Amino acid sequence: MSAGLAGPRGAVRPLMQLVTMSGAPILRQLHLEERLLRCTGDNWCIINDGTAPATIVMGVSGRVSELVEIQPVLRDQVPVIRRFSGGGTVIVDQGTVFVTFICSKNAIAGLQPFPRDIMSWTGQLYEKVFASFGEFHLLENDYAFSHRKFGGNAQSITRNRWVHHTSFLWDYDMKNMDYLKIPKRAPKYRLARNHTDFLCSMKEYMPSRSVFTEGITCALRDHFTVQPMELETAFSDDKEFVPSTKLLSPQDLEAIISSKETHTVHEVQA
């Protein structure tokens, strides 16, 4: 663990490398995060303000046929990515702000590298960011204002490191939500609400994106010595690293449709 400056009680704060991007393709961001998780021992915070084009991002074990409206996605040529981490399915675009923490397991004193413990710590950190702007809650595995979700999370934990990444809805295009099915395993607090009633945008509560990102940096300084890092330095080429995050091809999606149709025919014949 890299050492930083001494804290107010003499404790040495670990170093957190901060990489900020604007409009980076989400596939490139996920490849960067996976490489930093698996190939470095440093602590990182990645902030990406918006992405294009609108893209569906699924968890590593999500079933496309249960989560995505495949025919409209193919028709409108919406990219679909299967990322390296767990969690649910989201559609992201220029209205999404991404924040990722990649840490060694001993970076935060007392934090056990388990999903619930990590969620608890990040929830407390974001509570500092949002305290002045709304009734912030960590509800199950989501970030919400009151009872409406504005941040979805995913995690991956390795032997010595973990990643927690969030897609925050600064704003969203409700039409894009039509590409997603309501998952069978929805959080209890959703109460079968549709996307319109379940989601909210951060711009309803905060004055600007910069206020949000500056708040994150301030909250991190309670735990880390934050050091800005140039993207080019962080994203140095590593020819030996092969990311598991993949862009699904149209042929992949068409094969899922064909497989589902074949399965249905067999059920009817039976």
Results as ranks from 00 to 15, higher is better:
T40S: 13
Y172V: 07
V99A: 10
K105L: 03
V226C: 12
S249F: 11
V268L: 15
K128W: 11
E204K: 03
R82V: 09
E230T: 12
S132L: 10
G134P: 01
L253F: 00
G134W: 09
S22M: 07
F198S: 13
D178W: 00
D173S: 15
V19N: 10
F241L: 07
T225D: 13
E230N: 09
L231S: 11
S236V: 09
S259P: 00
F150C: 11
Q269F: 15
R38S: 07
L36V: 05
V211L: 07
R185A: 13
T213N: 11
V163W: 00
E135R: 07
S85G: 04
D252R: 08
P72C: 03
K260G: 03
L30Y: 02
E232L: 14
E34P: 00
E267H: 13
L231V: 13
R116P: 00
V97C: 05
E140F: 02
H164V: 05
Y179F: 14
R190P: 00
A192V: 04
L74V: 11
K184S: 11
G59P: 02
K239Q: 06
T51H: 04
E140A: 06
I46C: 09
A192I: 03
R83L: 11
L125I: 14
V268S: 10
R148A: 07
K184G: 01
I256Q: 02
V97G: 04
F114Y: 02
T158R: 14
D42N: 12
L37A: 12
